[in-house]
Amino acid sequence: TYYTVKSGDTANKIAAQYGVSVANLRSWNGISGDLIFVGQKLIVKKG
């Protein structure tokens, strides 16, 4: 599943929404920190 980042989103918020850990969200998308951008497409695997 892909999720498009919206204004006000955070890695924590997206992870919680899908029931996954922030560490997994980072791993699936090659993100090292919490910096995400509006319009960015993230791979999300439901927990």
Rank of each mutant, 00 (worst) to 15 (best):
T1S: 10
T1W: 14
T1V: 14
T1Q: 12
T1I: 15
Y2T: 09
Y2C: 14
Y2I: 11
Y2W: 13
Y2H: 08
Y2A: 05
Y2S: 06
Y2F: 11
Y2K: 06
Y3K: 00
Y3P: 01
Y3F: 03
Y3W: 03
Y3R: 01
Y3Q: 02
T4K: 06
T4W: 10
T4F: 10
T4M: 09
T4Q: 07
T4H: 08
T4C: 11
T4N: 05
T4E: 09
T4R: 07
V5F: 03
V5R: 00
V5Q: 01
V5Y: 02
V5W: 05
V5M: 02
V5E: 01
K6L: 09
K6C: 08
K6I: 09
K6D: 04
K6M: 10
S7I: 15
S7Q: 14
S7E: 15
S7W: 13
S7C: 14
S7H: 14
S7P: 15
S7N: 12
G8K: 04
G8Y: 05
G8N: 06
G8R: 03
G8F: 05
D9E: 03
D9A: 00
D9H: 02
D9T: 01
D9Q: 01
D9L: 00
D9Y: 00
T10R: 03
T10S: 08
T10A: 03
T10I: 04
T10N: 07
T10K: 04
T10M: 03
T10D: 08
A11R: 01
A11Q: 11
A11C: 15
A11D: 06
A11M: 15
A11G: 04
A11Y: 15
A11E: 08
N12A: 15
N12F: 14
N12G: 13
N12K: 14
K13S: 15
K13L: 11
K13Y: 09
K13H: 09
K13E: 10
K13M: 13
I14N: 00
I14W: 03
I14C: 03
I14D: 00
I14M: 01
A15W: 04
A15D: 00
A15G: 03
A15C: 08
A15P: 00
A16Y: 09
A16K: 12
A16S: 11
A16R: 10
A16N: 10
A16P: 02
Q17V: 11
Q17H: 10
Q17W: 12
Q17C: 11
Q17R: 12
Q17S: 10
Q17L: 14
Q17T: 11
Y18C: 10
Y18H: 12
Y18E: 05
Y18G: 01
Y18R: 02
Y18L: 11
Y18V: 07
Y18I: 07
Y18M: 09
Y18T: 06
G19K: 08
G19H: 09
G19D: 08
G19V: 04
G19E: 07
G19M: 08
V20I: 15
V20G: 02
V20R: 00
S21W: 05
S21F: 05
S21E: 07
S21P: 07
S21Q: 06
V22W: 07
V22K: 05
V22P: 08
V22Y: 04
V22C: 07
A23R: 08
A23V: 10
N24T: 13
N24I: 12
N24R: 08
N24G: 06
N24S: 11
N24L: 14
N24H: 10
L25A: 00
L25F: 04
L25P: 00
L25H: 00
L25M: 04
L25I: 09
R26E: 15
R26K: 14
R26I: 15
R26P: 02
R26W: 11
S27V: 12
S27W: 10
S27Q: 14
S27M: 13
S27P: 02
W28T: 02
W28I: 03
W28F: 03
W28D: 04
W28M: 06
W28K: 01
N29A: 02
N29V: 02
N29S: 02
N29K: 00
N29D: 01
N29C: 03
N29R: 01
N29P: 01
G30C: 11
G30M: 09
G30R: 09
G30I: 06
G30L: 08
G30Y: 08
G30P: 06
I31F: 14
I31D: 04
I31E: 05
I31K: 03
I31P: 03
I31M: 13
I31L: 15
I31A: 04
S32E: 15
S32A: 12
S32N: 12
S32K: 14
G33L: 14
G33C: 09
G33V: 09
G33Q: 08
G33M: 13
G33A: 09
D34W: 07
D34N: 11
D34C: 10
D34M: 09
D34H: 08
D34R: 06
D34V: 08
D34I: 08
L35D: 15
L35S: 13
L35A: 13
L35Y: 13
L35Q: 14
L35I: 13
I36E: 02
I36Y: 05
I36P: 04
I36G: 02
I36H: 02
I36D: 02
F37H: 11
F37E: 10
F37W: 10
F37C: 11
F37P: 08
F37D: 07
F37Y: 14
V38D: 05
V38A: 09
V38L: 08
V38C: 08
V38W: 04
V38M: 07
V38P: 11
V38I: 11
G39F: 05
G39M: 04
G39T: 04
G39K: 02
G39D: 05
G39H: 04
G39S: 04
G39Y: 06
G39C: 06
G39W: 06
Q40V: 06
Q40Y: 05
Q40A: 07
Q40L: 07
Q40F: 06
Q40N: 05
Q40M: 11
Q40S: 06
K41C: 12
K41R: 13
K41H: 10
K41L: 14
K41V: 15
K41G: 05
K41A: 08
K41Q: 12
K41E: 10
L42V: 06
L42N: 00
L42Y: 01
I43R: 07
I43L: 14
I43Y: 09
V44K: 00
V44N: 00
V44T: 05
K45G: 12
K45H: 13
K45N: 12
K45F: 14
K45L: 11
K45V: 11
K45M: 12
K45D: 10
K46P: 15
K46T: 12
K46G: 12
K46S: 11
K46M: 15
K46C: 12
K46A: 13
G47S: 12
G47E: 13
G47L: 13
G47R: 10
G47W: 11
G47K: 10
